[in-house]
Design a protein around this nucleic acid. Structure first.
Lengths: 339, 339
DNA sequence: TAGGATTCTTGGCACGTGCTAAGCAATGCC
DNA sequence: GGCATTGCTTAGCACGTGCCAAGAATCCTA
């Protein structure tokens, strides 16, 4: 910065004022400084700025880069945070970078709030973080009284799907999912609840698999091996839904004529024309907005109680769901070549 | 840190020495300091450390979080960098965060080297970066004389695929791809070259689409609308390959019995059991290693010339490729329901 | 022209850390 | 007992910036 000042023939402080466009510097100094900045390619040292400032105006996010929904969330958070003049420090989780490592790193950057996907609640660094800053659990209910939580409303989401399917005449509605973190069981509970509310408690049929495509394929194979296929299968994620369709399709089972299939997330995958998947929309941007709101609320008012926010679920109806095949055909058996 | 020193009844400097485990402090001081650190949950201020240090030992990566390959690359880079005691600053690109914004941010953090996926070469900040630090183009050839480049060897990759298919008796080998950045055209060129080398110049058949699944679906529909299907289709990405399979499959065209399909990347998608896609492996970890090596080489020896590194391609053979259908059947026409 | 108001500029300290050099106590040696 | 040596501790400066308060220059008014 001194170099810039020398070139512009002003003092370092004037340069600082111009760069922050604070009142003071004359128009002449301003243009001189900006010209010098441009010529030297000057860029202020972020570390020095952060060190000097009273507040860092940074928030941290702990997430797993390979999980699509989390990456999308991060993108949305970045854009929303910049509108609030907040910076975002990314804390990518990998096999070697555990909750503990990532949270320590974020605390080292003096973030003022923290959002965590799938955190390890036993991490000591996370415990300290919770005791000092607003921490928001992302994508799942909180078990901790001291943290906020922002996640989509699975109960409402599964109610929407089940109602949609029931409206199409379905009764044998299976669910592929239930494993994985806290969300897995929660969402499966929501399925059972929705089925019970619809008076279909005796049709509950859960295939315990995880969220990945491989899990959906496994569930599909289990179903194909049975004597009798359900008329609809709800996947716990878009990946699972897409895999269900692909495996069914290869086995000669038509979607939605023979079986209706749904996903969960309404990500890019669901919208793909060759999947065309009816799915509950989990709005990454809305979740990012709520997470940021929760952080800001507790930063502005440190005494406010942590809350659990369930963002509304909506249903995007596409071509993978249709009227249930008539009960008179006595159950469909897979035919054709099995992939 | 002063708080820690007070609690441990030593000076701030002793605390600093213990935390860096530098020689000096006695065993008694060490344990006292560590106990105090633990009790207070102290975490050194990264900004202050970076400001004080001569070198930051940071490298920056500009990438797009929603692109799977780039996220995987980042994960690998994180792990490799930590082994070299280097930090990684992530520079996520989003619609609002352009090359210019991201590179400025990274320069502000005083990174010592920079890796960029799909950069906008006209960005002024990027020009300054190139003039000051080792910059590595990621995933594509460099056009600039002043930057390194690390990308997988597309020429070798397409030669492997074409040879594999020719070995299975294929001649009518189409290519779905060619659009998108610099890689798109490059990879299509590699296809044409491989076909020519195999003596199949007159069979070259390129469908100009991009890298996304939607693009693959579009290409598949174009092919299905023709009188005559090729016996093999090479997708420019796993996404494209998977989409080709899905659309073919729905149209009653069997893979690989009727048409062989390949992908490019060998990502998780290719390995999915219901895709089971033969694909060229683009090794994210190897690319990360080479990128890091390039940065470190130029940091250690600032005068060394930038290089273009093509990482070796290998072929992962799975179930989506098989012997070409006999020429005697006079070309296959799609049958069954089209999805 | 003097005095005050206004506009612009700058001296100097602080942020939290790393590191050099100096200080201090204990021990060994002659 | 004096002096060097060793082991441990600490005083104090520097990193690059923001900001307060004080200084300098200019303009306006009497």
């Amino acid at each position: 910065m001194s170099d810039v000042a020398r070139l512009a023939a002003v003092s370092r402080q004037t340069v600082s004022l111009v760069l922050r466009d604070a009142p003071g510097p004359s128009a002449a100094s301003r243009t001189a400084v900006l010209a010098a900045v441009d010529e030297l390619g000057f860029q202020a040292n972020t570390s020095a700025q952060l060190l000097r400032q009273e507040r860092t105006r940074l928030v941290g996010v702990m997430f797993e880069p390979r999980i699509t929904f989390e990456s999308r969330f991060v993108e949305c958070l970045l854009e929303r945070a910049s509108r609030e003049r907040l910076g975002v420090v990314l804390g990518p989780v990998t096999p070697e970078r555990t909750t503990e490592v990532v949270v320590r790193e974020l605390l080292g950057h003096r973030v003022e709030a923290l959002g965590c996907f799938n955190p390890d609640p036993s991490s000591p660094a996370l415990r300290t973080a919770i005791s000092r800053l607003p921490v928001v659990w992302l994508g799942e209910r909180s078990v901790d009284e001291l943290v906020d939580a922002v996640h989509s409303d699975d109960v409402a989401g599964l109610r929407l799907i089940v109602e949609h399917l029931v409206g199409l005449g379905h009764r044998d509605i299976a669910y592929a999912g239930g494993l994985g973190g806290r969300v897995g069981p929660d969402r499966a509970d929501a399925y059972r609840r929705a089925m019970t509310e619809a008076g279909l408690a005796d049709c509950i049929d859960q295939l315990p698999v995880g969220f990945r495509e491989e899990d959906g394929a496994a569930a599909a194979r289990v179903l194909l091996a049975r004597d009798h296929l359900p008329t609809a299968v709800i996947g716990c994620s878009d990946h699972v839904g897409a895999a269900l369709i692909s495996v069914f399709s290869r086995a000669g089972v038509r979607v939605p004529e023979d079986v209706s299939v749904t996903g969960y997330d309404d990500s890019d995958i669901a919208a793909l024309s060759y999947h065309d998947l009816t799915a509950v929309r989990q709005d990454a941007d809305l979740n990012a907005a709520e997470a940021l709101a929760a952080m800001m609320r507790r930063l502005d008012n440190p005494d406010s109680e942590p809350r659990d926010t369930a963002t509304p679920a909506t249903l995007t109806i596409r071509g993978s769901t249709g009227t249930a095949r008539g009960s008179e055909d006595g159950g469909l058996r897979p035919s054709g070549h099995v992939g």
